[in-house]
Simulated scan of single mutants.
Amino acid sequence: MIVTIEHAAGFEPIEQVLRCCDEYEASLNLTRDKRYTRIRITVDQAYSELFVRLKSIVGVAKVETTGKPYPLAAREAKSAASVINVRGIEIGGSDLVVMAGPCSVESREQILATAHAVRAAGARILRGGAYKPRTSPYDFRGLGEEGLQLLAEAREATGLAIVTEVMSIADLELGAYYADIIQIGARNMQNFSLLHACGSINRPILLKRGPSATIEEWLLAAEYILAAGNEQVILCERGIRTYEPFTRNTFDVSAIASIKHLSHLPIIGDPSHGVGKAELVPQMARAAIAAGADGLIIEVHPNPAQAWSDGQQSLTFEHFEQLMNDLAPIANALGRQLNPNVQALVVS
Rank of each mutant, 00 (worst) to 15 (best):
3 V>I: 15
8 A>P: 10
9 A>R: 11
16 Q>I: 06
18 L>A: 09
20 C>Y: 12
24 Y>T: 02
28 L>V: 11
30 L>R: 14
30 L>T: 14
34 K>L: 14
34 K>Q: 15
39 I>T: 00
39 I>M: 08
44 D>Q: 15
50 L>T: 02
53 R>H: 10
57 I>A: 12
57 I>K: 03
65 T>V: 15
66 T>V: 10
69 P>N: 09
70 Y>K: 06
78 K>Y: 05
80 A>N: 14
80 A>D: 12
82 S>P: 04
84 I>F: 06
84 I>M: 02
91 I>N: 05
93 G>W: 01
94 S>L: 11
95 D>G: 06
95 D>F: 02
100 A>L: 00
104 S>A: 15
105 V>D: 01
110 Q>F: 04
113 A>N: 13
114 T>Q: 02
114 T>L: 05
119 R>D: 02
120 A>Q: 13
120 A>L: 10
126 L>F: 01
127 R>F: 10
131 Y>G: 00
132 K>R: 10
134 R>G: 09
136 S>R: 09
136 S>Y: 02
141 R>P: 00
141 R>T: 08
148 L>A: 04
148 L>N: 07
151 L>C: 03
152 A>G: 04
152 A>C: 04
156 E>A: 13
166 V>K: 07
167 M>A: 12
167 M>W: 08
168 S>P: 07
169 I>A: 14
175 G>W: 05
175 G>P: 00
181 I>D: 01
183 Q>C: 05
185 G>D: 02
185 G>H: 05
193 S>F: 02
200 S>I: 13
200 S>W: 14
203 R>H: 09
206 L>A: 04
206 L>Y: 07
207 L>A: 08
207 L>P: 02
214 T>Q: 08
215 I>P: 04
219 L>H: 04
220 L>S: 12
227 A>C: 10
237 E>A: 06
237 E>C: 09
242 T>M: 06
242 T>R: 01
244 E>R: 09
244 E>F: 01
246 F>V: 09
248 R>K: 11
254 S>C: 05
256 I>W: 02
260 K>T: 09
268 I>G: 10
278 A>L: 03
280 L>I: 06
282 P>Q: 03
282 P>C: 08
284 M>A: 13
288 A>L: 10
291 A>K: 06
292 G>F: 06
292 G>R: 11
292 G>N: 09
294 D>E: 09
300 V>M: 11
311 G>P: 12
312 Q>T: 11
314 S>T: 01
319 H>F: 11
321 E>F: 11
322 Q>T: 15
325 N>E: 14
328 A>K: 15
334 L>Y: 14
334 L>R: 12
335 G>F: 09
338 L>Y: 03
338 L>W: 07
340 P>E: 07
345 L>Q: 15
347 V>N: 13
